[in-house]
């Protein structure tokens, strides 16, 4: 089975990359193996149709105003998507956010 890909998107992909590090640590602690990466919101359309397609998409809460549009693109691509809980995001809670992603993957 190939590795599941989790994609996070925020404004510039900068603050979210912090969270990615925490999520990777959380995954490692669980013995799970995911390909997790952060990107800029502008790249969502390209990424969802590209070669390296994610299996789940998480949006940073600061760009939840694009959630509606992103949902349309994600639905077309058949990729589950949600906005990350604000508190989990702020506290960089890798465990909780990873769980959010895993729930969508099931």
């Amino acid at each position: 089975m190939t590795k599941k890909i989790i994609m996070l998107a925020c404004a510039g992909g900068m603050s979210t990359s912090l969270l990615v590090t925490k999520m990777k640590a959380a995954a490692k602690a669980n013995g799970a193996d995911y390909d997790i990466f952060a990107t800029a919101a502008a790249e969502i359309p390209d990424r969802l149709t590209g070669d390296h397609r994610p299996d789940v998409l998480l949006l940073g809460p600061q760009i939840r105003y694009i959630a509606e549009k992103a949902q349309v693109i994600a639905d077309q691509a058949g990729i589950p998507m949600t906005v990350i809980n604000m508190h989990d995001y702020g506290t960089m809670n890798g465990v909780n956010v990873l769980k959010t992603a895993e729930d969508l993957l099931d």
């Binding site: 925020c10 603050s15 912090l18 940073g60 600061q62 604000m86 508190h87 995001y89 702020g90």
Partner: peptide, 18 residues
């Protein structure tokens, strides 16, 4: 460390400021 690079989402959402 993020503050050094002008990123403060942890404060905005975690403290929170929002």
């Amino acid at each position: 460390v993020p503050a050094l690079f002008n990123i403060n989402e942890p404060f905005l959402f975690g403290l929170p400021i929002v």
